[in-house]
Design a protein around this nucleic acid. Structure first.
Length: 576
RNA sequence: CGGGAUGUAGCGCAGCCCGGUAGCGCGCUUCGUUCGGGACGAAGAAGUCGCCGGUUCAAAUCCGGCCAUCCCGACCA
């Protein structure tokens, strides 16, 4: 492609709306333009990257025997009522009404549609297992779209659905997808890691998220050298140090005037925050509960919501604490008989001689020993894991990094097949619900994640496997006829050997073209300037390292082919 | 939805407090010079000042309402 003909509207200045590198760079490099909040047009460079990512996805999935289909974006309300998700999916489901007042959703995911397809047309065990996928625009009415394509309301996603006869089959399909995903992200040139994940609203049992490592990632991942890795919201931990060796002391009420927070009480009494127990009252779906957590730690809301099996979870108000719990905000505690259920983080089980609220204004208890002084309805893992916590598998301290979630795989089991009465006929003729799995990859998010992982102050540094072009040929002297006709020639020769090349033939200053080339981030630049030209040489620059090599005219094609091979080899060695 | 901000030329912004009919930089068009890290000169095109209403002789500017966009928090590929 000649740059002079290409639609690549680059920008010198940073756009006001962009916060993170991928967003800024996609706009500046002429890949992306905004239409509305969380709604974007993909210009030619972006579309090429998307195509390359999709090609890798298709190749790897097809290799596992998956088959591509295309399902509708528009879903009738009745379909979502079959699974019960019209009600539970919540405001994130983009809903609309047609001229006859019929209600529809714009599909955020396609479990319902695919299950219906299977229900009608995959009736025999002989047809199983089967895995169907699509690459489709998805809609999610995000509370707050941000970071450009990273969290948008409309995005391109690959979603696959597996159907198996039994759990063992599902496990096999799941393992295949796990393997395919690892290969896909590696082939995209990305450093990624699979972590244990929360199943969230989709439901089901086992799940992994694939995270691309990047400082700007929205998720914190805890991992251990033994291989354990999980998002911080989902991470389990080995119990922290206990105090079981202490003797239980006598319970005592102490005056703590106007000291409510952990910091205040801990400073006033001269004890460490870890000797305090916070008692937090929540309003859950079916009533109020009190949760106990060590003073220096936080409650993990995902764990709590999962444990309580509830959709809405909020703090009780001061009024509710007074009226329902018969206590005082800031001084709530577990000692004595209570009207509501009390659940304690299991790490408190061995804690001795703790400080808690005394359910009375300006008073706390000291020397509280939960098993002696309180009634705990259940001990549960509720703590938010942090860096330094011990690995649940091997007990070593875990470290943390940030990541961008680019894919997630789930074992759904028979959740949808049962609710939608989708069954196959087994060998003995009985109707059995499919065992299903679902597997997503955010295509456009993967593109953004690649930029987050690979950029510098000058612009994007594309991994060659998903780069919009493999080579950028830069003519620094378009006014010189001999140089230009030479460049035209090189352009032809490269195309003849199927190298995808962007040819900067524009009548612009050298610096201008260099800046654009660095910004756009094509991995290999061939620079044709006057001085080198007179010596029958060109310069080849590697975008990633900045390394510049000179190359004789006759060797250009061979050298470039070799450099391309090297870059692919570097990627391939990380593909299992 | 709560908190904070912004809306003026394609992009980035000033002007608003103190009302008098719009300006700067980049980009764009033409010409000339320049030509290895976002050149210079000259000439030019381009804006219903987010929308609706109010106050006023007069509104980008003051007042009210609405809309949109962005940032911080709770959700997710």
């Amino acid at each position: 492609m000649r740059f002079s003909q290409a639609f690549i509207p680059t920008l010198k200045e940073k756009p006001a709306e962009a916060e993170i590198p991928s967003h800024t760079l996609m706009i500046r490099s002429g890949m992306l333009r905004k239409l509305g909040s969380g709604i974007y047009s993909y210009l030619p460079l972006a579309k090429k990257v998307i195509n390359y990512i999709e090609t890798i996805v298709r190749e790897e999935l097809d290799d596992k025997g998956c088959q591509e289909i295309l399902m509708p974006v528009l879903h009738p309300r009745e379909l979502w009522e079959m699974s019960g998700r019209w009600a539970v999916y919540g405001p994130e489901l983009m809903r609309l009404t047609d001229r006859h007042d019929r209600e529809f959703a714009l599909g955020p995911t396609h479990e319902e549609v695919i299950t219906l397809i299977a229900k009608y047309d995959i009736k025999s065990y002989k047809k199983l297992p089967i895995n169907l996928y699509q690459i489709q625009t998805k809609f999610r009415d995000e509370i707050r779209p941000r970071f450009g394509v990273m969290r948008s309301r409309e995005f391109i996603m690959k979603d696959a659905y597996s159907f198996d006869k039994d759990k063992a089959g599902l496990q096999k399909s799941y393992d295949d997808m796990y393997d395919a995903y690892s290969r896909i992200f590696a082939r995209c040139g990305l450093k990624s890691v699979a972590v244990e994940a929360d199943v969230g609203a989709i439901g089901g049992s086992s799940s992994h998220e694939f995270m691309v490592l990047a400082e700007t990632g929205e998720s914190e991942v805890l991992h251990c050298e033994c291989g354990y890795a999980a998002t911080s919201e989902n991470a389990k931990i080995a119990p922290f140090d206990d105090h079981s060796s202490e003797d239980m002391k006598e319970l005592a009420k102490i005056h703590t005037p106007d000291r409510k927070s952990v910091e205040e009480v801990s400073a006033y009494l001269g004890v460490l925050p870890e000797k305090l127990i916070k008692t937090i009252v929540y309003k859950a779906d079916d009533g109020f509960v009190a949760i106990l957590i060590r003073g220096d730690r936080e409650i993990n809301n995902v764990k709590l919501a999962n444990f309580l099996q509830c959709l809405n979870l909020e703090f009780a108000t001061e009024q509710e604490i007074e009226n329902i719990v018969k206590s005082v905000a800031g001084f709530v505690g577990p000692v004595g008989k209570k009207k509501i259920k009390i659940y304690a983080d299991e790490n408190l089980k061995s804690a001795k001689n703790m400080v808690t609220g005394a359910d009375e204004l300006d008073y706390h208890y000291k020397n509280v020993n939960l098993e002696r002084d309180a009634h705990i309805d259940k001990w549960v893992d509720l703590v938010q894991a942090v860096e330094g916590d011990l690995c649940p598998k091997c007990g070593k301290p875990m470290t943390s990094f940030r990541g961008i979630e680019v894919g997630q795989i789930f074992q759904l089991g028979d959740k949808y097949s049962t609710s939608m009465e989708a069954t196959y006929d087994a060998e003995d003729g009985t109707a059995i619900p499919y065992q299903m799995g679902c597997y997503g990859i955010g295509i456009t998010r993967t593109m953004a994640a690649a930029i987050e992982q690979f950029h510098d102050k000058d612009g994007i540094i594309w991994p060659i496997s998903i780069s919009p072009y493999e080579v950028e040929l830069i003519n620094l002297s378009p006014a010189e006829e001999d140089i230009t006709s030479f460049c035209d020639n090189v352009y032809e020769m490269l195309q003849d050997v199927f190298i995808d090349v962007l040819y900067d033939d524009r009548d612009e200053k050298a610096g201008f073209k260099f800046k654009d080339a660095d910004l756009i981030g094509i991995p290999i630049h061939i620079i044709v300037g006057k001085k080198n030209f007179e010596n029958e040489m060109v310069e080849i620059k590697i975008r990633k390292t900045g390394e510049k090599i000179t190359c004789a005219f006759d060797d250009i094609v061979e050298k470039v082919e070799q450099l391309i091979d090297d870059l692919y080899e570097e990627i391939d060695k990380n593909v299992e």
